[in-house]
Design a protein around this nucleic acid. Sequence first.
DNA 1: TTCCAGGCGTATC
DNA 2: GATACGCATGGA
Length: 271
Amino acid sequence: MDYCKTNDGILVSQNDFDIAQTLDCGQAFRWSSCGDGSFEGYFLNNRLKISETGKGTFLFHNVSEDEYLGIWKNYFDFDTDYGELKKRFSEDETLAKACEFASGIRILRQDPWETLCSFIISQNNNIPRIKGIIGRLCERYGGFPSALRLSEETADSLAYLRSGFRAKYIEDAAKKIASGEISTGAAAVLPLEDAKKELMKIKGVGPKVADCVLLFGMHRMDAYPVDVWIKRVLARFYPDGMPQCTKGFEGAAQQYLFHYVRCNPGELDDN
DNA sequence: TTCCAGGCGTATC
DNA sequence: GATACGCATGGA
């Protein structure tokens, strides 16, 4: 048993997991630090406070056993062996450093629609402002709005978000998902390139956002988003593409690298 | 003031 | 298919 019930919630023993590294590495935008190492946030409309009470031991505050097993265990991807992944990745020198730098990153299993909407907002934007826009969105609707609810809006009625040119993209995404014209469920089982093409029928969804949705919202570990930071990593270390040891799990490797170079931009310098 | 931010749509060649 | 440029907003 890797968890037990306590009066305060569920206590979980888990390797290869760091709360801040996982929730604050640019894959999710609805979590905030409590300042003491704990984080509070949401998956859909399920609220959670999570703390590390000892090395490798985590408290899911005021969570029932059913909620832990039915929601959070899956959200944090506790059934995937990231130790094994990191072992494979570490055949590569740069990846070895990245995995060691933030060894507790896990790829969250987020909601496809929320992830789609969030990464549309993320384009040509910075993380604090992305969080601000999503925060205003959730405040307005008392939680992250469904595609159906948002499909009633227009770019003009979304002006309160102050999301700039992205408002018309949010409108298009909401309408295409709500109508069923685009189905994330259908895209999930397509070959990677076909799934990307399907998502890219939405205005404001290009290759990078599509990969983010596939990786962070549909857990397609073979999808790896190439943003400005990963472009720099590829140019500096992998001119011929991601190394062979990442095959099938390029997305996870990408996330270790992304976090590593964002925190250590000097590693990109030639020397 | 200017530059930049987990890009993309459009025009142009 | 490749490349250049504009885009809303706000923080550094």
